[in-house]
């Protein structure tokens, strides 16, 4: 059995670990609230732009945007992987990367080429080690805890341009969807060409907008913003997921540390009592011998 001093040191070190995990838990909890607020704040824009784009797809007759066209042959694929920059958030990044990797294997088997955009350094280092072609990247210093549209434009543009140039035929985004504090779900969604839900409703409108300066440039701008809004929303969801996952992970780490401390204290006390008993019996034994 370990000596009393050793156990005391161990207890001390676990206690300081617990202090850290506890602090991280509380930081994550406060960040989580903010991240959730931001995620919700982003929703009206997404809803509005979806409605406008929906109106557009009904009203519009004579101009078809490449974002709306499904290409018959899909030879190469673009993937935007959204992960966190920092670790210590449970299985969050592992889950999303596993999902992405499975899909990548499928694409590989079908002979499709792949290019990746990594948002968040965890996803980047994983994809780099896996040897995927990474065309653009946004890391921690660029994003921090706030999803910022102006930072996302660049990495997204690389993929969108590739789509427009025909270098990729379809663009997916992988991120962790926030369901609630305890539950986050890794998903891969199709970003381009725009999926059918935009054109889903059946009410055919008999009117068209007045466009200024002209239909093409306004629609181009609008659809680009739509794609960016979806991306922004994904990143915001991912951040809320990250903070929740971290909070939960840190909470269980703190709880574990507490249990370990309890056990160690028990061992320590037992050891202490054992020594006392031993000393007493030695004294008694000594006295009896005299």
């Amino acid at each position: 059995m370990a000596s009393g001093k050793e156990i005391r040191n161990k207890i001390k070190s676990v206690e300081s670990t617990r202090k850290i995990t506890k602090a991280m838990e509380m930081v994550a909890a406060s960040k989580m609230r903010k991240a959730q607020d931001r995620m919700r704040a982003a929703r009206p824009y997404g809803d509005k732009i979806r409605r406008v784009a929906g109106n557009l797809s009904h009203a519009l007759t004579d101009y078809s945007h490449p974002f709306m066209e499904v290409r018959p042959e899909q030879k190469s694929v673009g993937l935007i992987v959204v992960t966190s920059d920092k670790g210590l958030c449970g299985g969050l990044n592992t889950n999303i990367l596993r999902l992405a990797l499975n899909r990548m294997k499928e694409w590989d088997a079908e002979g499709k080429k792949l290019q990746v955009t990594a948002i968040g350094s965890k996803g980047f280092s994983f994809m780099a080690r896996a040897g995927a072609t990474i065309v653009s990247h946004l890391s921690g210093s660029g994003l921090g805890d706030t999803p910022r549209m102006d930072k996302l434009i660049g990495p997204a543009k690389v993929q969108i341009d590739a789509y427009l140039n025909g270098e990729i035929d379809v663009l997916y985004i992988a991120y962790t969807r926030f369901i609630n504090t305890m539950k986050q779900e890794p998903v891969i969604e199709q970003l381009l060409p725009l999926s059918g839900d935009l054109v889903g409703s059946t009410t055919a409108n008999r009117w068209d907008y007045v466009y200024e300066p002209d239909a093409k440039s306004v629609i181009d701008d609008l659809l680009l913003r739509y794609v960016e809004a979806v991306l922004y929303q994904s990143v915001a969801e991912n951040m809320a997921s990250e903070q929740s996952a971290r909070m939960v992970a840190m909470k269980s780490a703190s709880d574990n540390a507490k249990n370990v401390i309890g056990e160690l204290k028990l061992i320590y006390n037992k050891a202490r009592q054992a020594t006392i008993t031993k000393e007493l019996s030695e004294i008694v034994g000594g006295a009896a011998a005299v």
């Binding site: 990548m104 590989d108 792949l114 955009t117 990594a118 980047f124 780099a128 080690r129 896996a130 040897g131 995927a132 990474i134 065309v135 653009s136 990247h137 946004l138 890391s139 660029g142 102006d150 930072k151 434009i153 660049g154 990495p155 543009k157 690389v158 341009d161």
Partner: peptide
Amino acid sequence: EALKAKQQAEEAAKLQQTDVN
């Protein structure tokens, strides 16, 4: 911005392999 994102990827991926491992 796009160029910056590209460069960031290139700089960080110097040790990249050719095949997807």
